[in-house]
Each structure stands twice: as C-alpha cells, then as structure tokens.
C-alpha cells in the first residue's frame, strides 16, 4: 500500500495513492460514503499518465483517517464474506 498523506486536519484529509486505480478507489469511496460521519468522499485523477489519484475526505465529528480505516475494514469483511459465499455456493452447485 503506497500512499502519501498530503494534508490532514480534524475533519479533512487529502491522500495520494501511488499504486491504486479505479479498481480499488471507487469501491473505497462507496464504503466511506456508508459512514454517516463522512460528509464527502471523492477521488480525482488529473491525468492517468502523469499523475496519481488524489483522495479527498471530509468528515463531521470523526477523524478522517479513522473513517478511512473503518471503511477499509468494512470492505475487507465484505470481500471475505464473498469469498466464503463463492466457495460454499460453488460446492453446492456441483
């Protein structure tokens, strides 16, 4: 996980991701927006060949990096659930 924290305040964070693209960032954004303390979550790629995606989070009474961590943990759980479902349902299907 290669990232640079450009700016962090008590309710805002700006993070540059070096090795990720839409594959992960879009679903990370979705997970962040599920958190009621997250006011806004968005990412921007200025140009795919010359810059890295910049993620911007704004929260209401929650540390933005904690919100990001909770969002990643929720995603980890969801992917883990899906793995279990694929294994179980593929067995059942055969």
């Amino acid at each position: 996980m290669n990232l640079k924290i450009i700016r962090v305040t008590e309710d805002e964070a700006e993070i540059e991701f070096l090795d990720e693209g839409h594959t992960f960032l879009n679903v990370l954004k979705y997970s962040l927006l599920q958190d009621p303390h997250v006011e806004s979550a968005t990412y921007d790629v200025k140009h795919p060949m010359i810059s890295n995606p910049i993620f911007h989070i704004k929260t209401e009474s929650k540390d933005p990096l904690k919100a990001l961590r909770d969002a990643s943990l929720r995603l980890k759980d969801e992917f883990e659930t899906l793995l279990g479902l694929i294994r179980l349902k593929s067995e059942e299907f055969s």
Binding site: M1, L3, E20, T23, F24, V27, L28, L65, L68, R69, S72, L73, L75, K76, F79, E80, L83
Partner: peptide, 13 residues
Amino acid sequence: LMKTASELAEFLG
C-alpha cells in the same frame, strides 16, 4: 481485493 483493503487498514492502523 481483500488483500488491498486489508493492507490499507493495516497501514492506517
């Protein structure tokens, strides 16, 4: 995908 999410959580932890 699960590994990426897990790595991010760990880094932030």
